[in-house]
Write a protein that binds this DNA or RNA. Structure first.
Lengths: 211, 211, 211, 211
DNA sequence: GCCTAACCGAGACGGTACGTCACGTCTTTTA
DNA sequence: TAAAAGACGTGACGTACCGTCTCGGTTAGGC
């Protein structure tokens, strides 16, 4: 789950070999991530968030960080994950309701990224390293996408969505407007009813009767 | 227009004061940007694209770069601009046609960013520096947005678009799907008819008769 | 003794705090000084003896040099010390013999400075930085001066030197001629019997019977 | 006389070719040297006395300096000369009186170099460049030396100095003590009667009766 | 009174070195 | 054997000068 290499506690084994010697301290791992978060909250720009500084803040040796993460970006993935709210539980009452919940979660993540303070483009940094981006994509982005597509598929099955609509395109239509406001128009508002507005407007054009 | 400080040739004035001394060479400026482009085309990852290396490649002193740009990000803005195709000319035959042309341009820009080679995420890097991002946003992103909104407004005027639709939301609905595929789903295809598909699908839900 | 900050080995303490972490390598320090010496021996003029070049020659990072010396001049003090022959042992048979030994050592140092090759004026460079010059003066020049004055004092005590002579002036009379030839008349010869000539001529005017 | 290339006014010729075009301004040359002097008087350390800064201070273009002097050190020679008092007129009443006057002039030059402010080791800097040092030596040091030796020769002729004494050594004996205090012991005092003390003490051992 | 060469101030130019910082690895001691 | 500390080689950062080179704009003769 975490990009950090697993602990001895995770079954007394690492890399296939039995773990010997002093086990890694989970407290240390927490204090590293919390140190990074604290710095971000204090307004330290991401470009000044060096491994060296995180180690200093967390009172930890650099080697202790490199023992767990391959580099700055890999660490940021876990910092990002720690900062995000957990994935929402879908009500399952209808495709429309499920979509609203998904988009509302996206809106809240967007809000988090806002005030130029916390995590305002950790994601951007990550794209510098294809390896890391792929890891983040596989672990975080892709599952959300799969959930979205699945919700749409169920909508097609129960007649809430036109049968001839391409699910990928429909997913993009729903998620796109939120992404635009989050990534390209950071000055744009994210009002409370935004998720509903988007979903309803998009569904307007995709409902079976609209054919 | 360019983020580089203007040349003597631009009216014999810089910063309000008359330009004295040897004028800056436009050839030098071109060779800097071309040097950076060449490195990117050769597959040098953005993280290794240091000012030092660009200067070496362009056969130019570091100070000559810093004389024109405040730092790496400011330079990248101009590199990015130089690499992008020019903004398209709108046919003006209809809102639908104009939108297709705008989205087709966005698709082509997205294609450029693809092969992990050129400019694969210069834009991501820029967001690290709010100042630079704001400059890029004001100079490049915002004008495109204004054009998009204007096209939609004309569509509303001539009855192609429902009168009660929020233009900002409509703009996001049109542009969002392309952004999703470009930024979050770089594995997604950008087929030739993508612009048309998106525009037509979105307009389906927004046309007056759909009310 | 050295101007370089002391090693962990020098008592397990630096700057009052106990030394932790990886200790500084003495081998590295040696290779830096030897690298600088090698360059000087190869005829590199002092003005081209940059920290950057020394680091390159010694196969060492610049930071490793700055960790030990505050700058170019401080490093040169230690280079100078490493190049100089050790202070001579005084025979103690008479003031005259001791003086001859001291002056012969000065003559040999002067010879070293000659052929425009080694250390031809490191000392001159040092005077550019009062701080460094003071350090060199306190560590190297002053002790030699004290030795010289002490020898003269013993001569006064045992009747080799007039009792009413000012020791400072006498010291300058003995050392001055050698300094003139070393510093101001680098074309002048430093023949083997120079030390004896100077000492005997000076003592001629300062011996008790001359009163 | 000056190391600066000669003016048009100096005979309507330069480099063998007749001088054409606008003649060099002597006022500019003065303002350059005065600018350098002012900076030194204001306590700017020699190491920070760049050509660039001198040009700025004097309100002069860099090229205007390089047109006159080959580099920093060549300029310093003329700055040094401008700062030194003129050579003294010898009374000619006796060798002893002439020597006292010469040494008093040396003492006053030494005083100039004192307060760590003005010219405190311009001479040291010059030694970095053999070419410049040779020029300074030939123009300034050697003539003084010749004068000193000549005075001593006249003393030998009129019986003030022993006939078998080596004039070079005698010169060094006289000048050496002053040099020591000026160059190696900058903390040493230079009392008003120092010149007399040195000359009289040295002559004590060199007068004919002392043989 | 004009021509023209050389001067002048300003500052751009390709370089090189500066001293600092962060990278990721390594070598100690301590636990 | 992990962990904290910090030294290590590497290399980029942004600044300052180097000495040379253009610029536009003066000054002087010599015609």
């Amino acid at each position: 789950m975490s990009l950090a290499e697993s602990h001895a506690g995770d079954g007394r084994v690492r890399d296939g070999r039995p773990v010997r010697g002093r086990p890694r301290s989970e407290a240390v791992e927490r204090s590293i991530i919390e140190g990074a978060m604290r710095l971000l909250e204090e307004g330290v720009p991401l470009s000044e968030l060096s491994i060296e500084r995180i180690a200093r803040t967390a009172g930890v040796g650099k080697a202790t960080i490199y023992r767990r993460w391959s580099g700055k970006e890999a660490l940021f993935v876990d910092v990002l994950r720690a900062a995000e709210p957990p994935d929402p539980v879908l009500p399952g009452t209808s495709m429309r309701d499920d979509l609203v919940v998904l988009m509302e979660a996206a809106r809240r993540r967007g809000l988090l990224n806002r005030p130029s303070a916390i995590l305002h483009n950790v994601i951007a940094q990550m794209k510098s390293s294809p390896k890391i981006w792929n890891a983040y994509h596989a672990d975080v982005v892709a599952p959300r996408r799969r959930t979205l597509i699945e919700v749409l598929r169920r909508g097609q099955a129960n007649g809430e969505l036109r049968a001839d609509v391409d699910l990928d395109l429909a997913g993009d239509l729903v998620f796109g407007p939120m992404l635009v406001r989050t990534v390209m128009r950071p000055d744009a508002e994210l009002p409370e009813n935004l998720a509903e507005s988007i979903v309803d407007t998009v569904l307007e054009g995709l409902r079976p009767s609209a054919k």
